[in-house]
Design a protein around this nucleic acid. Structure first.
Lengths: 128, 128
DNA sequence: GCGATCTACGACGTTACGTAGTAGATGCTA
DNA sequence: TAGCATCTACTACGTAACGTCGTAGATCGC
């Protein structure tokens, strides 16, 4: 689990692209910086980006720190964590976990299956 | 994949309990039957259940067939399929699949990890 | 033919999200 | 230090999903 044990609803479309900027950045970004990056591919009001960043913070998906009069935002958790949380939630909704996992591995690509085996091996090595 | 290759958004709360009735039933159920079952634990108008069943049908999550003047609904896909689809969607959102899978297996229970290994073995046996 | 039962469709409240404007606080600069 | 640029806080609006029903009309069995 990342942080919240509850409801990790999938991100909205704009929320996702904003988070992607944060994940892609080395450091925490200001609203302006995120806005600038997004402006390369779409038109958005500065305040729109600010609102989204703010909402993400309220949802605990971003954290922010002061930098002068501005806030700097960074992702509260790695992208992979978010994805893993969503996978968990999905699995939790299945009645029969075994069956759900069977279906899941049955639909992943060969590469993904290999990655899964690898991850499990690594886990085994750790757990002993 | 179950049916729709796209957006398998998680079900709403009422949609979920309705689907659970369908999954739990041996045969296709009428609105009345679903309503009766749900009425055991909560109060709902008959038409509310009907609306939900209808919406689920429009979303291709249920299929229906005539039975006299009434419709009989059944889940369009096994519950496990839905869960697996959601897991897929979640995985697809991860930037780095490897990392996401590592995080995922890192948070599943020991039992789930075992089930995953089992499912992968089975897959391997099939794929050769 | 009637009454019970169904469906079709519209409606309303709430919440999430995309999108943005206004007002006021704040910090840099000439 | 006065003022402009910049930032935040807050409010707002439209849309879509969903929970929740009601009404009207079709339909089936007696």
């Amino acid at each position: 689990m990342t942080t919240d044990p509850k409801a990790a609803r999938p991100l909205g479309e704009l929320e996702r692209v904003v988070m992607e900027q944060l994940w892609a950045a080395d450091a925490a970004l200001t609203v302006r910086e995120v806005h600038e990056r997004l402006s390369l591919t779409r038109e958005l009001a500065y305040t729109t980006v600010m609102t989204v960043l703010d909402r993400l913070a309220k949802k605990k998906l971003t954290e922010r720190e002061r930098d002068g009069k501005a806030w700097r935002y960074r992702a509260a958790a790695p992208r992979a964590d978010l994805a893993a949380d969503l996978m968990r939630d999905a699995l939790d909704q299945a009645g029969d976990r075994r069956e759900a996992l069977v279906r899941f591995v049955g639909q992943v690509s060969t590469e993904e299956a290999a990655l899964l085996r690898e991850a499990l091996s690594r886990l085994e090595a750790l757990d002993g």
